[in-house]
């Protein structure tokens, strides 16, 4: 029996693209209702690891995952688990805002619809609730029929968050969600993450050290080893990582001496 405080538990995860091992031997836990940040230099496998958490890597031809990833004591990589089901419970927000070129309403309603919710009133409810949670409702409530592409970059990203939480996932994975946004939009998203933390478990990949320090409770620092494969160097409370890291490489990185 695993600890019920853990939303996800990675045990010796190895991720391959064909012959290339992009991530080596990562073991870590993601605690419930906490924000866990993944940091590290470019190309160290942060996105790869994050995508393995909801089996998005299955979509990459030739990608393969070894090891165990426990979600409520269930190994997500056991042959009996359907990737589609996994993604309904572990949602994802991408680096570049990618709303569907459809009305705002349809963007949010799509997730519930594919899960079989058809009733208009129920969908209306979900759309409003999700947009409110994503702090977007007041800005778009009068133009739900407008295309999602007509919003600003920051609004689009919040729309993507609303879309992801409309299916009531337990975990929300975010891959550098602010890297395409201006500072003000970034701040709004960070506030939003703090609010969402009450109901969801969040894993965020970020390039931005301050962001990791500001928003996260736990931080995992990754780096490539001599075989250019990503390894987990250190995983601890964020405060500890940024003030008193155990590994000198972590210290070098978070103080900006490297990377």
């Amino acid at each position: 029996m695993g600890n019920s405080n853990y939303a996800l538990q990675a045990k010796n995860l190895n991720i391959y693209y064909g012959e290339f091992r992009a991530v080596t031997d990562v073991s870590m836990v993601v605690e419930r209702h906490k924000i866990t940040a993944l940091i590290g230099p470019s190309g160290c496998g942060k996105s790869t690891l994050l995508r393995s958490f909801n089996r998005m890597n299955d979509l990459v031809p030739g990608a393969r995952v070894e090891g165990e990833l426990l979600f409520q004591d269930q190994n997500l990589y056991s042959p009996f688990v359907d990737a589609v089901e996994v993604r309904r419970r572990i949602g994802m927000v991408f680096q570049k805002p990618n709303p569907f070129p459809k009305p705002i309403y349809e963007n949010v309603a799509f997730g519930p619809k594919v899960q079989g919710i058809r009733k208009k009133s129920q969908l209306d409810d979900i759309v409003e609730r999700s947009l409110r949670k994503a702090a977007l409702w007041d800005e778009v409530k009068d133009k739900l029929k407008k295309s999602g592409l007509e919003l600003s970059g920051g609004q689009q990203q919040r729309l993507c968050i609303a879309r992801a939480i409309a299916v009531e996932p337990e975990v929300l994975l975010m891959d550098e969600p602010c890297s395409a946004l201006d500072p003000i939009a970034t701040l709004r998203i960070e506030e939003l993450m703090r609010e969402l933390q009450e109901q969801y478990t969040i894993v965020i990949v970020t390039h931005n050290m301050q962001q990791a320090a500001r928003v996260s409770d736990y931080t995992a620092f990754m780096m490539v080893n001599d075989k250019r494969s990503g390894e987990l160097v250190e995983f601890d409370m964020t405060e500890k990582i940024f003030t008193n890291p155990a590994d000198t490489r972590t210290e070098d990185y978070v103080t900006g001496r490297f990377g």
Partner: peptide, 26 residues
Amino acid sequence: QPSIRQASFGLGATKWQTVWNHVLPY
């Protein structure tokens, strides 16, 4: 765009749902 496909899969849509709701209309 591949990002559209990813968004759809990321919401737990099946392949056919993705093709029918997104790929084909666009």
